[in-house]
Structures are given as structure tokens and as C-alpha cells.
Design a protein around this nucleic acid. Sequence first.
DNA 1: CTGAAAGCGCTAACAG
DNA 2: CTGTTAGCGCTTTCAG
Lengths: 356, 356
Amino acid sequence: MKTTISDVAELADVSKSTVSLVLNNRANVGEDTRARVFKAIKDLDYRPLKAAQALTTKKTRNIGFMEILPVHEDTENRDGAYGVSTMIPTFAYDVARGVERETQRCGYGLLFSCWYNRLNRTKLEIPAMITNSWVDGLLLVGGAFPDEFIHALKTWCIPFVFVGGHSAAETANCVFADCASGGFQAVDYLISLGHRRIGFINGPGSTQTSFDKMQGYLSALHKHHIELDESLIESGDFSAQSGYEAMCRLLDRCPGLTAVFVGFDGMALGARQAVLERRLRIPEDISLIGFEDGWIATHFEPALTTVKVFKFELGVAAVNMLFESMSAEGRRKPKKIIIPTELIVRRSCRRLEEVK
Amino acid sequence: MKTTISDVAELADVSKSTVSLVLNNRANVGEDTRARVFKAIKDLDYRPLKAAQALTTKKTRNIGFMEILPVHEDTENRDGAYGVSTMIPTFAYDVARGVERETQRCGYGLLFSCWYNRLNRTKLEIPAMITNSWVDGLLLVGGAFPDEFIHALKTWCIPFVFVGGHSAAETANCVFADCASGGFQAVDYLISLGHRRIGFINGPGSTQTSFDKMQGYLSALHKHHIELDESLIESGDFSAQSGYEAMCRLLDRCPGLTAVFVGFDGMALGARQAVLERRLRIPEDISLIGFEDGWIATHFEPALTTVKVFKFELGVAAVNMLFESMSAEGRRKPKKIIIPTELIVRRSCRRLEEVK
DNA sequence: CTGAAAGCGCTAACAG
DNA sequence: CTGTTAGCGCTTTCAG
């Protein structure tokens, strides 16, 4: 039988309410009483039952982590989701690490759930953790959640914050990496190395992050008075395969190409293969720079120069933002937190000799 | 204000208990009454409050997913854990996908937590989800949890199952991939291709999975009457770096080596690099075969032949096993579920010509 | 500063 | 087959 607050009260020779007061370390408890209660708690190894607390306070002290996953019906019943992880192998996972650490630190529980974004979905299937009031707030990872869902969240007054993905129009809290400045860093670096014809394989055009990277690309060009050549621009869907294809097109179409900025490390992997297949070398013939600094970046040959996204920190920041918006005074207007990126120089880019 | 069971009872003109009965679809409710109640539930969009149910039933209908992570103090406060994901990039994550799907299907919630296995840990820090009775059972992913922790779990009567890792001595429920048969598949395949001097880069000797892979290696050798040459055996710690180093040693030490079985795809990545650096080709000079069929396998050049571990299925099976052991009749003696592996032939192995 | 009492929303005997 | 009643373990007024 689990020990309850009554057991503690009895042992400490006080009432339940007093125990409750010290438990939630409120004021108005005598020093000696407090000590007695603490001792009893320790002796009994007492821990409040979360369900009971939740029932009375209407707060679960849990937050939900929800990752969005496109799903193709045909693969649905096996590793289905796995096909997706081809696209963004571990972004959400790395973020989750930060989220876990921070929720743990703050004494919150972390509920994990996926949103399977079925194409032929007929109705919203809201995860039970939401409908059953099992979480006080929600982290939405990866953007692109359906509007109806977001709307439902608002109706139900469930605080949420977007992590990693977002849309410009979004009137909600969100935290994401500074892709514009990241894109700038990458391209500025390439230019500083002497490159002028710089290809760009961006992510899908529909996402704000891709838009931002493009801004970065453009502003770096602009800074150095390089005119935009639209034929240097390609895009993929984050998969290695799409990176491969985009690079093939670039290589075919753009003579004099010496460097390519790829909007995602995973795509860079495919791009790299396209380069190699043409018997070109990296970085001697083509300099390559990625984005994210995922696990794969260090295992590239040569190790991939890339723009690091601080995923762990993204998670931590998101949790704190969520907490803030969960607290009463946090119900202000939506905020954005933008986490800086960092250029990680490895060995996939080289300085272009001046061969005027 | 949230609608409660009383609201439903009132609208349907029955008592709360009747509503509760239909909710938990028990027998003993008239067809018409049931219908009335359902209608009221739908009209009010009523969902039972999980906290209240948990309080009365002593069941949370949540399970916990706990991943173990070695932690080095110096990196602890940043991407700390990230260094670890270098070793097993996504094993736990892929398992989690299966777990999520299955818990969702069964109406359970999934709590996520990491166990940071600090080397200089002084005391057990049990996650709150356990101490506060927030979960009914626990999935322990990756093995190597400290004995005291396991012992505490038993004391508290919290059902748990090991996933992926396990120890032979373990007297607990566990589900894991059939590494012995997987190892056999790999080596048998290499032999069938004509290879005789087959190197083996195993995982750390301390783990049962490594032991099993070794058994597979040995029995394949035995089947084909090939004598064991211990100099062909190396081991690493799952990291790409360790795979690289092991392969270097193998290459230096073993003339006539034509194929290597690597106990983990991530290590194979490093091994591959060692091969390439010596200007040897894969598969022309050295055939390489991995284990796990992780994301990276398809992005190898050439695509890596490997032994597939069904991680999603591992997760699903683990959940069901946990449910079983949570139910009263499940409290039998510990069981093991072994998930078969599958040889995935890609392009990193070649047939050895008979050059007698 | 401390205690008594009410009640959160639900389930589970037990009557009827 | 349905309703009444009594809690589950905790927090929170409100008195003392």
C-alpha cells in the first residue's frame, strides 16, 4: 500500500493540510513543524500521487511532445514512419533530448506522441493525451500541422509552441534556428573562399525555413555584389535522393560551378554522390556545405563543412517558452525565439585559387 | 469548464454510474440506455478526465519509455547526450516509433525519459514519472541499467521489460533481435560467396548482443568447416571511430582478408573509411557487411549489405509484452521474445572468384 | 500558524 | 438493469 499524505500527517503529528503546505513549500508553517514533516516524509519515503494532485489542481505538470510525420498508406503498417526518417533522420530526436532534460529539471513529465499526417485523412484524430487532459501544454515539432488541429488547440485553450518549423503567418509562439543568418554564414564563407558561382539546393519551397535560407543566400550574394543567377538554384524534399537529383541537374546545367550550398546535411549526402559519380572531387572540384550538423556530417568524406543547428538548445528554449505561455501572465502576444546558428568548418570546402 | 460525467448523466437522464458503465463498456446496460448515454457523450463532446480515472483505479494507463545514455560530465550541459548518439544514432528512436504506435493504438500514454548513466553518480535519481506513480510499466531501452535501479523497480512492483539490450543472466522480461541468427546469416552469406578469411568487428564484449553475434559467426564457420582464426576478430564500441581503428588493425594484421562482418552499421562506416584510405575498393577488394540496417546503410557507397533489425517491431512487441506482464495473470516467470533478423543484400559484398 | 471539512471527477460495491 | 453511496489522495478555503 502506497503511503499517503495522511500517513505523513499522522507520523509528524500534524494535519494533512499542514503537510500539503510544506510539500508545496508555502509560507506560514513553523520552522519546527516543517522540520518534523520533512522528517516524516523522508522516513516514510513519501511521494505525492500525481494523479491526485492533478485532480485537485487541474494541472498535470506534464507536457506533450508531438512530432509530425507524413505517412503513406501503403507503408503504414510496418516501418512506415521509417521511410520518413530518411528525410529528417534525427532532428526531432535531438530536440527531444533537450526537451527531456529541461522538463525533467523542472519536475515535469514528458508525453511523446506522433501526428501521422495521413494524406487521405477524413477526420482529426486527436491523441488521447490532449483530449483527456493529460498534458498542460504542447510542443509541436516540425511544423506543417493541419490548421484544424491548431484551431482545436486554441479552442481548448491548450498552450503550444512550434519548434523547428514555423510559418511566417503564424500567430503562435515558436522557436527555430536562424536559417536566414545560417544561410548567410554558409554562402558568405564560400564567397570568402573565392567562389563566385555558388549553387544552392534548398529544401521544399513551402517551408519558412527554406524561405529563410534563401534570404541568407541572397543577402550574402548581395553583400559581395554578386548577381543572382537563378539557374544555380534547385530544391529537394530533404531526402538524400532528392539531393542527388538536384545536384545532377545543377552539374548538367551550370558550367563553372565551384561550390554548392545544400540546405540540409541529408541532401548533401546525395549531392555528394552525384559529384563523385561524375568523377569530380570534393573539395578539389566542388566545395560542398551543408546545414544542420547532423550526425552524418562528421562521417562524410571529407568531413562536411556545415551550418550547425543547436537542436538540444532549441528543445530547452521551447520548453521554457511553453512554461511561460502556460503561466497566467504569459498569455500575451505570440513570441518568436530565434536560435543562432554556427558555421562549422570541416574539410569539404576549399579556397579557390585566383586564376583570373 | 470541462464537462463532467455528471453533465452526461443529467443529459441522458441516468445516474453517473450508468454512464461510467457504458464508458468502460461493461455488460449490464440496456441497449436504449446505452444509446442515450452515447448520444449525450457525443453531444457534450465529453471525455473522461484521466487524472480522476487514475485516482480511482490506481491505473494511469501510461507507460514509460526509458533510454539509457552514458554521460561524460564535461559535456553534460550542452549537447552532452549528443556525443552518445554518435554511437547508436537512432536505435532507441526507431524503437520508440513502434512503441508510440502501439501504445496509441491501445489507448495508453507514453512518457519519455532518459537515464543518464553518470559515471560518478553518487545516488540513484529515479525519474519522477516512476516515483510519482505516473506510469503503470516501463520499457527499458538499451540495456546496462544499474542493478540498484532494477532492484528498486522490483521492490516497487513496477513491471518492466528490457528492449534491445539484455543480459544472459537477466531474470526479467526482454525483447531483442536475434543477433545469433543474424550473425550467422551474415557470415553464412559471405561464405556462400566464396569468402574464407572473414574478419569480424564485433561490438563491446560486455554486451549479450555481441556475444550472440559471435555465436553466429562461429556457427557459420563451423557449418562450413572453416577453422576459427582468432586474429580475424576485433571489437569496437559501436562508434564509427572504433570501427575505423579496428579495421586498420585487421587490415594490417591479416593478409588475405577478403570480407569483414561488422557488428553495427555505424562501425561499418568507419571500417569503410579505413578500407578506402588504403586504396582498396569495396566490394572488389574487401566485402563488407553490417548489422542493423540503420538509415545510413542505404547511403553507403556502395549501398551496404547488412542484417536488418526490425526496430519498429521490437517496439511493438515490447509494448505488448509489457501489457501482458502488467495484467494480473501475466505475473509469471520472465519471458524472452526474440525477433528474427533478415539479411538485406545490397552492393557491398561480391562473389569471390575461384582462384585456386 | 494549524486543523477541519469540503470537494476535484471518477469508479465500484451494494442495494433495489 | 439502474441508482445510491462511499471513497481514491490531494489541495484549499475557512475557522480557530
